[in-house]
Amino acid sequence: MTTASLPPDLQAAIVDLDGTMVDTLGDFSAALDRMLADLALPPVPAAAVVDMVGKGSEHLIRSTLARVHADPALYDAAWASYQRHYPAVNGRHSQVYPGVPEGLRALQARGLALACLTNKPTAFARALLRDKGLDGFFSQVFGGDAFARKKPDPLPLLATCQALGSAPARTLMLGDSSNDAQAARAAGCPVVLVTYGYNHGQPVRAVDADGYVDALPQVAVLLPARL
């Protein structure tokens, strides 16, 4: 855990999903392998998938096709196949990271309203949260298809703050990648990153953030006493 300087008057927290609350690499790999099989293309190893997740399904599919040197013109067929297969594997090959429910309860105990904001499609995100018993923590859930632009654009954070009724400067972003940090900086939100997530295969501590935690319950410890 790295000490952070966070506002004492936080109202809310926005929490990323993949790589922050749930390790979904197995779900992504299973859906992509089924998609590639439909297109008579070779599978990709999970070690390669981890570098491609986090920027939305469109980016993941295009990156996967490029990885296997497929014709980019196959994108529409790949998209349709992925959308068909993902609901069948969603949550089947994934695990909640240790301490996540405890961390969310600790944030609620500090009086913070919680929203989940992910680049995963909203329907997939809601289904995964239900499957893992995490849906009850969040008053708002927004996916990558909820707004005109995705993280790292600040629009999703600003719109989520509006839905929560919280000021950006008083809304903490919790994520695992540069996408989350860049969006938070641009939106004017403080940001703390977990050290165990994906971050496109890059060291997360190299990302500009207000703090880093090795487990979600540590976030509550970083929060200053209320004034």
Results as ranks from 00 to 15, higher is better:
A184Y: 03
L157R: 01
R170F: 02
A184T: 10
G133E: 12
T122D: 15
G111M: 12
R205H: 10
K151S: 12
K120F: 08
D131T: 01
P168N: 07
S178K: 05
A146N: 02
P121K: 04
Y196C: 12
Q182C: 14
A181G: 08
P203G: 05
L172C: 12
G201H: 01
G175H: 02
G165W: 01
Y198Q: 05
V194D: 01
N199C: 08
D208A: 10
S139T: 11
H200C: 14
A183W: 00
L114I: 05
V191R: 01
H200Q: 14
A148L: 15
R185N: 13
H200R: 14
G111D: 09
L129H: 09
L157K: 05
V191N: 03
L158F: 11
P190Y: 07
C189D: 11
F147W: 11
K151Q: 05
R149K: 15
P156R: 06
A186P: 07
K132T: 15
G188V: 06
A109I: 08
V194R: 02
G197W: 04
T122L: 08
V141Q: 03
L158V: 05
G197H: 03
C161V: 08
G143V: 04
P203L: 06
G103F: 05
A123C: 00
R130G: 10
D176W: 04
P152L: 14
D153N: 10
Q108D: 04
T171A: 13
C161G: 06
F124M: 02
K150W: 00
A109R: 12
T122K: 09
A109G: 15
N199M: 08
D135L: 12
R130E: 15
L155Q: 13
L174N: 11
A206Y: 02
V141Y: 02
R170Y: 07
Y196Q: 02
F138K: 11
A127P: 10
T195V: 12
G175A: 06
K151L: 10
F138N: 13
F137P: 09
A148K: 07
V194Q: 04
K151H: 02
V207Q: 13
G136T: 04
T171P: 13
G111H: 04
V192N: 11
V207Y: 11
A109N: 14
L155N: 00
L174F: 12
F124Y: 10
G197N: 00
P121R: 09
A206Q: 11
L174C: 06
A206S: 12
G111K: 03
P156M: 08
A187M: 02
S166Q: 06
A106I: 07
A209V: 00
